[in-house]
Amino acid sequence: MDDMRQAGDAASSGGDRVHADNHGRDPHEIIDRLADGVLPALIARLDASGLGELEIRADGWHVRLRKPYDRRRSVALPEGRRRRTEPGDAGHARRAEPGEASHVAREGTRAREGGHASRGDAGDRDDARAAASDPRPEPPAIATAPAVGYFAPRDGWGPGRHVRSGDVVGYVDCLGVRQDVVAPVDGFLGRLLAQPGEAVEYGQPLLHVDLPAVRPVAAAAQASSGSGAEPGTADTPTASAAPTAEVPDRPVGSAPGARPEGA
């Protein structure tokens, strides 16, 4: 079912285009068609092709599928004493599986080498845990400090907001120069890992970017515990659940960022 899990994910990315390009048509209808028919087929094709990325534009919609890098390629340095990364933060340590297509941007998986390094170990444990309770949760990606200085999240961008890879989600003030904290992947802003105004070091995890819901479209109910989202928020791609006020462009799927601890 793993490949299927990504369908909602892809659909959510294409979603704003769906809105933009299909004046007058019911977006839900289009999404249903994408999710039930087109995406599973595309995913299967991507899987079979050995390609890393597949982008389809047709009929006013647009879908891009990417396979994640093997995130465990990092050098396994010993876990740094001062790394404030917790095992639970091991967002980058998920093993890429054959047939898995996801939204994780390459920029994101490359992330910060050092941050990566200490996450390597954590990832092992995470994998072990995950293996024990399949379907495994989709761990969040982490936006890290681009410099040493004082951290400030971006004004008005709260948990649950939809972000694209590369979006500025906060700043680190390094000697009066504001340096951008960017989202490593497309997703939803999750919880803060550093307090506003806190002194942070280079590469320090600052906030979670929760990956969009990843659940089987055809058999959603079966995987309701899979995404780490609150059960029931996203069982169908059309269910527009969870607070959406600050994410008007978030089309479908669950909002992992709206989890209680994300607040």
Partner: peptide, 24 residues
């Protein structure tokens, strides 16, 4: 305190990174 990536220009040779680290 980690002040930057391996590249010296962005860590040990970056006066902003070093001074910011001292301040924080």
């Amino acid at each position: 305190i980690c002040i930057g990536p391996a590249e010296a220009k962005r860590s040990y040779l970056s006066s902003a990174a070093v001074i910011s680290a001292a301040i924080v």
